[in-house]
Simulated scan of single mutants.
Amino acid sequence: MKKLPLAFAMLAAFAGSAAAQSNVTIYGLIDGGVEHQSGGAAGSVTKVTSGVQNASRIGFKGTEDLGGGLSALFTLENGFALDTGAALQGGALFGRQAFVGLKGGFGTVTLGRQYTPIFTSLCGVIDPFACGLAGNAANLMSQGGTAATGGGPRTNNAIKYAAPVISGVLAEVTYGLGETAGDTSALRTLGGQVGYAAGPLVVRLAHNNVNNATATARSRVTTLGAKYDFGMAAVHFAYAVNKNAVAGNTNVAQADTRDVMLGVSAPVGNGTVLASYIRKSDQTAVGNDANQFALGYTYALSKRTNLYTSFARIDNTVANNAVGFYTAGNATDAGSGDRSFNVGVRHTF
Rank of each mutant, 00 (worst) to 15 (best):
A238E: 09
A98F: 06
A328M: 05
D229F: 06
E64A: 14
L205D: 05
N251V: 11
T298Q: 13
A206E: 07
A98V: 11
A13V: 12
T298K: 14
G329M: 13
F8Y: 12
A328T: 08
S219E: 07
A72T: 06
G144M: 08
T305Y: 05
F325W: 14
G95I: 04
F80I: 10
T250V: 14
D259E: 15
G144D: 04
R304N: 12
T75G: 00
G107Y: 03
F293N: 04
A275G: 15
V210T: 12
R220Y: 11
N320Q: 12
H347M: 06
F325L: 15
S265I: 07
N242S: 13
F80T: 05
E172K: 00
N156M: 13
N244V: 07
S56N: 03
G150Q: 03
A41H: 05
G248Q: 05
V24W: 04
A186C: 14
A331R: 01
V100E: 02
R218N: 10
G269A: 10
V343H: 07
Q254M: 09
Q292I: 08
G263A: 08
D65P: 09
S219I: 09
Y228V: 14
G182S: 04
C123Q: 01
V48P: 02
Y175N: 06
G68R: 08
N330I: 02
G124Y: 00
N270T: 03
L93C: 08
I118G: 01
Q37D: 13
A275I: 00
L177P: 05
D183L: 10
L201I: 10
Y239A: 14
G337E: 03
A197L: 11
G145M: 08
A233D: 13
L307A: 08
Q283S: 09
G195W: 00
